[in-house]
Write a protein that binds this DNA or RNA. Structure first.
Lengths: 343, 343
DNA sequence: GTGAAAGCGCTAACAC
DNA sequence: GTGTTAGCGCTTTCAC
């Protein structure tokens, strides 16, 4: 049976209010009183009951993080960053995964954790414009992390998808590649990561006055390594000529790289390839992967910051949208300055 | 202002207890009453306040998961499995990372979340025998996942470190390799993962009547890809002959593989290599990594099960220790049946 | 500076 | 079957 404030106050010979004051660093307490209280706390090994505290105060200091799945390296690293940023501000993080389908994503949103969580960091995956109302009506302070629902109903911290993909594509073009596969498209999608990155790819081609060829666009559903690998394999069977790949994320790129090499193609000799996300692993792949660093740390910091402001009620104004700067990280899979002989 | 039980009861024209009964699926309620209550709940969009519920009931249905860090793929995948197992039983998971140093590990243990979490799943990293009392006195139901503190003070779900490492080593020996590097040792450690896996390695050598050579044991502190890569690089500089590597986890193996290939050595042609953990990525590395699958899913399921039993107070007996079965997964980096010409 | 007391929203005796 | 009520442990208003 854990000790309560009452136990402490009884042992210290003061009132419960005084104990509460000590715990909450209320400044005007006689030093001697504080000593007594602290001694009693130590003796009883007292810890405040957090349920009671949050029932009374209306704050739990817990933030919910809604992501597709942790076994996806990007989200694991994002969660890691979010938890560090949260911990630095005295907040805990309750993670909820919703997988890859719309139904469970909606289910997780519906399952409200009133009183258990003060706010939500939500990385959208499958929801879109028709779910705008759902997002708008979430009963908790919420900051969005995905890329859908622009001019959205909520604060939104985004990475620069279009610009990043454009930079990756331009990087390949600059090194002399001309026939670039876009790997990871989601047909019909416009404002999701896939749609935006495809836009960046197209913009880079247009700026270079190169034609956009449907033939070079490869659709891939989930962006896992296996999917990248399989998609590239079947693309190779089609016999379409190409000398570069703009993969829409790192795991796709790593999977594709594997398929290329299995097929006897050298990277970057025959085919140069870029990824997107800068997950840890890209530094250590063979070859090391050129990628776009979307600023994960900064996204996490900013999102937590915005959310805590909303929770504190410090801002009442319209939703804010913050685009975090990206960086192109040139590594071996698509070195800079290289010029290809063939093709 | 969210609706409360009172609001619902008022609107439905029944008492608060009746509403509570409906919510908690108390069986003996007139259908008509239940209808009225459900209608009121829907109209007010009522959700139970979880802080209040857990203050009152003493249960939060939240489980704490203490792990070193989520950016480590093994722990991300473990967390994923734990969260799925927990979700299937109506539990949420609050993850706390403590990094790689003893001090923050102790700090996380000390920071008790009384009332916020019903129990702990704790994957020990740096603590050892001298911390036995600390573990023993944790004020919450706790199930251990790491490998230290055998015959420990708590329920413990372990992977078969010794047996797994022995199987990996035997696998290499069976394919004709004779000079096997043990990669990832922690000098002086006995009952941690590194110590146990080294024991497995030694046992396999002994069983094959091969000498144990200190020269072939490579120490690596944290088991990240980079560390594996660097350690292998400096080992290569020493010029010691070898034809196989038993890496103590997958990321070490992947890093080492990279260093080997950079050095012009073929895998598995010149050097065969095995990992440990069976992280997703091992299927897609180049070459695909032979590894030990420690049974992550089953570990998660079992650990949650034991923990919930403890929380429910269904068991009062001595701590249980459960070793989950492992599997060797032979892939390209160390194929079975292969016989090497050289060396 | 410190104490008394109300009440956050819920569950569960207990009464009827 | 349903209602009344005490109280989980805390914060906070208001006295003094």
């Amino acid at each position: 049976m854990p000790a309560t404030l009452h136990d402490v106050s009884r042992l210290a010979g003061v009132s419960i209010k005084t104990v509460s004051n000590v715990i909450n660093d209320y400044p005007y307490i006689r030093a001697e009183t504080r000593e007594k209280v602290l001694a009693a706390i130590a003796e009883l090994d007292y810890t405040p009951n957090l349920s009671a505290r949050s029932l009374r105060s209306g704050k739990s200091n817990v933030i919910g993080l809604l992501i597709p799945e942790l076994r996806n390296a990007y989200f694991a690293e994002l969660a890691d960053s979010v938890m560090r940023a949260a911990a630095a501000r005295g907040q805990s993080v309750l993670i909820q995964q919703f997988g890859n389908d719309r139904e469970s994503e909606l289910a997780v949103l519906r399952a409200r954790r009133a009183g258990m969580v003060d706010g939500l960091l939500y990385s959208m995956l499958t929801l879109d414009e028709r779910d705008r109302a759902t997002i708008e009506e979430l009963p908790l302070p919420t900051v969005l992390l995905g890329e859908r629902l622009f001019n959205g109903p909520r604060d939104h911290v985004t990475m620069q998808n279009v610009e990043g993909a454009q930079a990756a594509t331009e990087h390949l073009l600059r090194s002399g590649r001309r026939r670039l596969v876009a790997l990871g498209a989601h047909p019909g999608e416009v404002i999701g990561s896939a749609g935006l990155r495809l836009t960046g790819y197209r913009q880079a081609l247009a700026a270079a006055r190169l034609p956009f060829e449907e033939d070079l666009v490869v659709s891939v559903g989930p962006w896992h390594r296996r999917d990248g690998s399989l998609a590239m394999r079947s693309f190779l069977e089609r016999g379409v000529e190409f000398d570069g790949v703009v993969a829409f994320n790192d795991t796709l790129a790593l999977g594709a790289m594997r398929a290329l090499q299995d097929h006897g193609l050298g990277v970057p000799g025959d085919v140069a390839i870029t990824g997107f996300d800068n997950i840890d692993e890209t530094q250590f792949s063979m070859p090391a992967l050129t990628t776009i660093d979307p600023g994960r740390e900064e996204i996490a910091e900013t999102a937590i910051e915005l959310l805590l402001e909303r929770i504190a009620g410090r801002v009442e104004d319209a939703p804010r949208e913050i685009a975090v700067p990206f960086r192109l990280i040139a590594r071996e899979s698509a070195p800079l300055g290289e010029r290809v002989a063939g093709v």
